[in-house]
Structures are given as C-alpha cells and as structure tokens.
Design a protein around this nucleic acid. Structure first.
Lengths: 238, 238
DNA sequence: CTTTTGCGGTACGGTTTGGTACTGAAAAAA
DNA sequence: TTTTTTCAGTACCAAACCGTACCGCAAAAG
C-alpha cells in the first residue's frame, strides 16, 4: 500500500499520472512486489487476479494457440500495466504474460481495479488510453512479424527492451529471444553475431549490451518507433 | 436514422445488442450508408469522423508504417464496428481502414458516439467488449504472420471473410489478398491454385468461391478460430 | 465489335529461414 | 574442485518465399 505522498518514489508512468483525487481508489490497494525472471503473471483462459504496474523489468505478453504456436504480441515496462483485459471489462487472460526480465512493481487486485475504473471517469480514460497504446504496439508487432526480416525484428525488440531498462545490458538468452520473435534459436545467434561484428552490441553468456543504439535504430527502420510515439501522444508528453 | 422498432431489420450484432433504454443515444444519430469496394473509412493520422456499423461487406484495418510497409491487422463485418480508437477515447485513426468487399451499414458521428458512451455504462461495456474482441483478433494476426505459412494464412483469411458474407463467393483479386497478407501476388496465385486443385475452392477472374469449408479449416488449423470463439464469449452466445 | 486495361498463370534465380544436430565452453550444482 | 547442466557457435540441406518479369486472356471501356 502506498500513501499519497509516497508517489514521489514511483517510477511507473501510469501511477504517476493518476489524478490526486483518484489516488484513494488505487493507492491503498497497491501491494509492492518483487518480480523475478520468468515470474508468471497471467495464464491463458484463467482469471486475471491482479493488474501489475511495473517499476522495473520487462514483461512479455505472448499469444498462444491450441497447437501451442506462440509469439510475443507486446512488451510492458514501467510505462504501463499488465491486465489490459481488465480495463476492457473482461477478467479472463487471453495470453500468457510473464516477466521476461526480472524487476519489481505494484499490483492491485482485479476487484479493486474494476471498482476504481467504474467510479472515476478520469481513471478510466487514463487506462483506456494505455490500452489503446498497447493495441497499437500489438498491431505493429503484427506488421513486423509479417514484413520485417529477422535482423529488423531483433533490432526492434532490443530497442523496446532498452527503452524499459535503466542499463544498456539486456539479460536474456538467445533461446528466449527466439521464442518471442517466433524464429529459430540459431537464427538469433547468427543475427546477434552480425550485430556484434558491426560493433552494435557486445555479448556475454546470457547477456547482451547495446553499444550503438543509433545503429540498431537504423536497422530496425520504421518497424520501430510508431507505438512509442503514439503512446506519448496518448498519455501526454510528460 | 433508425427508430427503435426499426431495429428488427438490422443485422449488425452490436446494434442488435444495444439495450432498449440505450437506443435513443444511438439510433437517432445513425445514417444508412452504402459502402462500395475500396471505400475509405479511416486514414492514418487523420481524425475519425464516424464509426461504421456494418450490415454487409467486409472492412479491412491495415497498419502502415513510415516506410509504407503495410499489413492487415483486422477485418470487420456485420459482427462489429469500425472506429475502435473512438471507444478508447482517442479520435485519431492509427490505421488505414477501408471496405475490402463492398456492402452497407449505418454510421454515427464521432461526437454522438462519444456522448453516448459517456452517458451509458451499458453501452460503454458493450463496445469495450467489442474492442477487446478486436484486440484478440489483432494478436492472433500477429501470431499467424509470425508463425503460419502462406497457405495457412490464406486459409485463415478466407474463413474470416466467409464468416462475414452471406454467399460463399469472395469477390477479391489476388493482388488485394496479397497486400492484406503481406506477401507476393504470385504467391497468392500459386496457393489458390493449390486449393483449387484439391477441390477446396473454385475461381473466376476477380472472384473465389469456397466449396469445402471444412477442408479449408483443416489447413488453417488453430490459426483460425480463437478470436471468433472469444468474441462469442465476450458478446454472449446470441 | 474493337481496343485498352487489369488480372492471373508461370518461370527462375537468389535470399531468407526452418529443421536438425553436434560441439565446446561457460555457469551452476554437487 | 568436480560434475552436471545450460547456452552459444556452427554447419548442412531443404523448404518457403521474394523480386522480377513476361505473356496470354478476360473483362471493361470505347
């Protein structure tokens, strides 16, 4: 639980943007949580018990179908929250959501969130705009999946991760990157090797560090950037 | 404009599900429209002036980036409405939306829709659930784009179109199918030829008719079906 | 009926990616 | 420290798909 005056210590953009008069609807219900690597937040078809406002780390939202095909459809960090369906009035998880890079955050029970959204129009508007931003991200993931090459998609992912981290180090194995991008592990290895050879990243076992962000942006081209710009527009430039 | 008693003639699922007490917020603002092939409904970055409730035909929502890469991220028919961002409190079009297969519908001005959603909780809940269903569709499009083969994606698209048409004939050129799937026109031609050889479809210039829907479903596998089932769950089985 | 345009069938080389598998090395566990 | 596990590097063939292009034919326009 967080008192109103405690918000100064909060990094989460959404929590930060909650109007003072709405804070009583959210703050008292928040529970600080540590979120380790691979911590599972939502499981497909199961009820969503909490929404998580991340402070640190990166969560992956992964779509899964009946034949176990899977691919990442969105990433969430300190700029947003998990549990988008809750905002839409649905309490069933559609996708698999888990921490891709460990961190921390605050979570709120589904019931408390629903009550808060029902009571405050401002709160509802804020979260709907976040949901809209997340939709845009998913749409652009669909675009990248369909038309970008492996190297471009990898670059896009690294940039999105970097945006949500405080260091340039991305602690992740090739295996997990491959799952998220929906490609072979070996393909990721080769692509990363190419980045390394061009001086864009350095690597260690289970870790990858961005060195030349501009260079990576150049590779990603226009597959990166639109969702980020749109989220800024939706939530204001602060 | 539609009177309350005129709703019996309506095929659109969403309009049909609007509660009687909410109808006054919507019905009087509706304008019947004929929607020809390629009719443009929304243009990226421009304001959304109307939301369209389709009666017949199929609309495509196509994501576009700065380098003009494009791919379809959703299709809409009589089961839904265009202008999802309006539901989320945003009035700017993110994607390109246009009629892929001509038809008809009713449109409502953005302002009237916004006012209606603000006034009625039930109306808001209904449309939010539609938006949630559309999000799921987009996520599964991302999944199919990343992991399905051309043949599977084509099968998926044909099934989604068929769901929204009254006849088994899909009046569409290979060229447009290719744009939506984000593949070569020639690739579509070859794939359709394969379907035809297996007796799944018959073709005429600018038209394609489903013959063996079950066979097409088998090809699409689990890439088709989830969004459809989820929309049913969200909006009720009626 | 003739002309023009757009659509579909086909081809070919090149690139990208998948499937699979083996290996050495780094990190974690014993 | 030794053993076990996990991860990254690499290789090979096959399949899928792209870029491009040409040509004949159907449908629309004149």
């Amino acid at each position: 639980m967080l008192e109103a005056h405690a918000r100064t210590g909060i990094r989460n953009r959404l929590l930060h943007m909650i109007a003072l008069e709405d804070w009583d609807l959210i703050g008292p219900h928040l529970e600080a949580v540590t979120l380790k690597d691979r911590h599972v937040i939502e499981v497909p078809t199961k009820p969503i018990t909490h929404a998580y406002f991340l402070e640190m780390g990166v969560a992956s939202v992964v779509a899964v179908d009946a034949e176990d095909h899977r691919i990442e459809v969105g990433v969430i960090g300190f700029e947003g929250m998990t549990g988008v369906p809750l905002i839409m009035g649905d309490n069933r998880a559609q996708h698999s959501t888990y921490m891709q890079i460990g961190g921390s955050g605050h979570r709120i029970p589904q019931e408390a969130l629903a009550a808060a959204i029902a009571k405050s129009e401002g709160l509802r508007a804020l979260m709907l705009k976040w949901a809209q931003g997340f939709m845009i991200q998913t749409a652009h993931t669909a675009l990248a999946n369909g038309r970008a090459k492996l190297e471009q998609r990898l670059a896009r992912w690294l940039l999105m991760a970097h945006d949500r981290l405080t260091t340039a180090a991305v602690p992740l194995t090739h295996e997990f990157l491959a799952v998220m991008l929906g490609v072979r592990r070996a393909g990721v290895t080769v692509a990363i090797h190419g980045f390394e050879r061009r001086g864009l990243v350095t690597t260690r076992r289970g870790q990858l560090t961005l060195v030349d962000r501009a260079g990576i942006e150049q590779i990603a081209g226009s597959f990166y950037g639109t969702p980020e710009a749109e989220l800024k527009r939706l939530l204001g430039g602060n």
